[in-house]
């Protein structure tokens, strides 16, 4: 037997091993998850939902789930990049995460009220950091508006805010849609939510 063949095969496997170390898995869109069952992939998306270790993310076209143990620092609205193997989780597919990076915390990404209004689909059910102006104040809620008063949104907050009308603020809250009266609203309901003075 020519010993050169197994020797070359071993060298080839070692070479491919080094390629596999340095090559990143395929970065895929969430809608293509099913094509990669059993494979390692990279996905990117915004956190839409969290239930224990299962996190639902959306990339704008589709949603997908990732299984991430000990990912407590990830919050609704964070933009994350996850790498892991696609596998079954009950009846659906999930990515069992090996590595996850938070690309942008939802708090760091301040958006204006008009932007939120025009891109509402992207943010419904998520933490948002919205900049705007105090329009009016009531017990249990206040209204936030843009500088030209074209857009207005109700913000539910049980505490009294130390800001006056037309003061520019940042509101960190959950963004909801109420189908019963076809209204969007913001709700300050978590310890990390709140209203702060807008600081350029």
């Amino acid at each position: 037997m020519r010993k050169i063949y197994p020797l070359l095969a071993v060298i080839g496997i070692i070479f491919l091993y080094f390629i596999s170390i340095f090559s990143e898995p395929t970065e895929i869109e969430l809608k293509d998850l099913w094509k990669y069952e059993g494979k390692e992939v990279v996905v990117e998306g915004i956190v839409k939902n969290k239930a224990g270790d299962v996190i639902e993310i959306s990339d704008g076209n589709a949603t997908g789930k990732i299984y991430c143990e000990g990912c407590d620092e990830i919050e609704y609205g964070d933009q994350i990049k996850a790498r892991g193997k696609v596998g079954e989780y009950g009846e659906e597919l999930i990515i069992y995460v090996e590595k996850v990076d938070i690309l942008e915390k939802w708090k760091e990404n301040a958006i204006s009220l008009p932007y939120l209004a025009e891109n509402y689909e992207k943010y419904v059910g998520m933490n948002v950091n919205v900049t705007g102006y105090i329009y009016s104040k009531y017990t249990g809620y206040f209204y936030l508006s843009d500088e030209y008063m074209d857009y207005k949104i109700r913000v539910y907050y049980n505490e009294t805010i130390p800001f006056e009308k037309y003061e520019r603020v940042c509101v960190k809250a959950l963004f909801f849609y109420n189908p019963k009266n076809c209204n969007f609203y913001l709700k300050i309901c978590q310890p990390f939510h709140g209203v702060e003075c807008y600081d350029d």
Partner: peptide, 8 residues
Amino acid sequence: VIIDLNTS
């Protein structure tokens, strides 16, 4: 070694 390589 090859199973997760991206060969598309």
